[in-house]
Design a protein around this nucleic acid. Sequence first.
DNA 1: CGGCCAACCTGTGCGC
DNA 2: TGCGCACAGGTTGGCC
Length: 278
Amino acid sequence: MPELPEVETVLRGLEPAMLGRLILRADIRRKNLRWEFPKDMAKRLIGARVLRLHRRSKYILCDLDTKETLLIHLGMSGQIIIFPPRDEHPELGKHNHVVLDLDDGTRIIFNDPRRFGAMDLLDTKTAEQHRLLVNIGPEPLGNHFNPDYLIQKIYCKNTPIKTALLDQKIIAGLGNIYVCEVLWRAGVSPLHKCKDLSQSQITKLVPIIRDVLTEAIIAGGSSLKDYRKTNGDLGYFQHSFAVYGRENLPCTKKGCSHHIKRIIQSGRSSFYCENCQK
DNA sequence: CGGCCAACCTGTGCGC
DNA sequence: TGCGCACAGGTTGGCC
């Protein structure tokens, strides 16, 4: 369920539970998710201490004191569930693929019905060169993502803006929901070709992208009080979607009486208001 | 290289 | 209740 804000929320739940802890047991309950797990994954995790947790795009990276980094991607349906020390551990369900037990009794479960998720173990030093990370564009909340960059990247591009913003090589971490929300806020149609956008329109997208993601992270944070369930759910932000999942419902922009439309673009739903988004 | 599309999986919700 | 279909928040890799 995870775009950047959901992954960030998961990370923030994981951090207090895992930081400084030793992994006592690693139960790898199948041989693969999207790809096969790395060789001897359990063996390489057991006995390792967690030094740092961080995020790159939709990937969680967990640096260990073994000079290796555990890389986690939640795919479409991945969840991480945290059981604090002394909590009862319910029986494992069929999609609980990886179970980590920490030295204070914390249990971390990776659950992923669709198995589009992934895990790998990387050399910490060269983690950023990993094939899954190396081509990802700048973090939207970081300094390298700015109007000049975005203009240089998409001005003159022949693709619809929707497709460009979903392209992880251009910008990290946006997914279908937040792209729809961003474009509604910007008043730009998802069908609008990049090359038909003015530089000033592209410039305006930058703070909107930052705002939408930041608000979603804040909403996610407030849903994390029960940190057992660090699932990638959309927290409270889903209650404030302007367009996503709102086909045929009224546009919430003041003075607009149109209804939200759903179209398919490169195989994925785009929700937008024909009246407000040009 | 750009752009389209199938593929990877399972679950859920809807219409009939 | 059951069946079939559409659809789901991501990403890769193959093809033209």
